[in-house]
Design a binder for these strands. Structure first.
Lengths: 204, 204
DNA sequence: GTCTATAACCGGATAGAC
DNA sequence: GTCTATCCGGTTATAGAC
């Protein structure tokens, strides 16, 4: 039991360390040494727990991928109001992004620079499309919102949420170079902005 | 003159090859060998023309960075109509993205995974902020559009344009898995969608 | 399970012939 | 200018002691 606890702890420490390093540097940019340092252990132990760099990476990546879809899926209510969906999603997702600002870039970079590996992760790419479309169709039929392709709305929403985080260094330089604190306020405002922006453009 | 032509040609070939490889794989993911193959030459020649991998990379990166801001800046008309700005920008930028779909991810990944190098490129990060803000303020004062922070609108617009490209593999898998051709149509529709979506949300 | 030491490999960079 | 051959450093991965 001592052994199991130790094992469990070390494994967990490795995963956390790997997470921070991989998410920040990507598969190619990350160094096993850096992960070992971050976890307070040595390189050899990384290989003892996870055979290779790539295997370790896959754990982190799969997990990051699932978590995104979880946030979306949890916000979908098949028979619910679109506005409730938008509010809960934007609220939850932007909160997640505040504490994990680099995950989107991590995911996008990996899927774009190693497209051949996408097939390996298909089972983690699970959006409740029927539920989402059903909700949209119902709201449109009820004239709660205007007629819009569900795909477009989701992409709009995701794009508006994610962009300030993946483009943050540019955003800072362009708009907040002499008020470095300004960006915090901008990001804070964003939640309300996105919600009211979407509401307005969805008017019937 | 023969020599100069040759030189110019080879240099150009290298830059083109480097562009395709770096944009797709990033600084760390790219291999000098792959660039050489792509250019139809050998590794040594790459170093002859550009001392190092990093120097070669910087050429490509600076160029990609400038080109984005050029498209935005060229669309800004200090005394013009916001809707004209939106239409010309979205039209031009989405057209650019069609032929260069990986540039956004390339830029975002680099600025996020090598933040320390951002200072090196500050002079390429040049948005005509005064002109843009002036245009916005004027349009708001004239009640052409509702009161909105200029920063938010720009981010909204960029996010909506860029997201389908950086997230394309996921988008394909989620929505167009059994209609692979569907995504082309979706991307085509997007131009009009974004424009009308923005117009509606900007109503006074 | 955890460590140190080292093997094996890969990739950027250089030397030197042509 | 362009090539082939090679060096050299860094990084993943393994061997083997504890």
């Amino acid at each position: 039991m001592d052994k199991q606890n130790t094992k469990h702890n070390t494994e967990q420490q490795i995963l956390e360390a790997a997470r921070t390093v991989f998410i920040r540097k990507g598969l190619e940019g990350a160094r096993m040494q850096e992960i070992a340092n971050e976890a307070g252990i040595n390189k050899a132990l990384l290989h003892y727990y996870f055979r290779s760099k790539e295997k370790l990476f896959n754990h982190i990546f799969e997990n990051a991928l699932s978590s995104v879809f979880d946030v979306i899926n949890e916000s979908i209510l098949e028979d619910g109001d679109v506005f409730v969906f938008i509010e809960t999603f934007v609220d939850n997702y932007l909160t997640t992004l505040q504490s994990n600002p680099f995950i989107p870039n991590f995911i996008f970079n990996e899927i774009n620079s190693h497209p051949e590996k996408t097939g390996q992760f298909t089972e983690k790419i699970k959006l409740n499309v029927p539920g989402y479309k059903h909700m949209m169709e119902k709201n449109i039929a009820q004239k709660k919102i205007c007629n819009i392709a569900p795909e477009h709305l989701l992409i709009d929403m995701l794009g508006m949420c994610v962009f300030p985080y993946i483009g943050r260094p540019l955003l800072e330089k362009v708009f907040f170079d002499e008020h470095p604190a300004g960006i915090e306020n901008f990001l804070y405002e964003r939640k309300q902005h996105i919600i009211s922006f979407l509401k307005k453009s969805l008017q019937p």
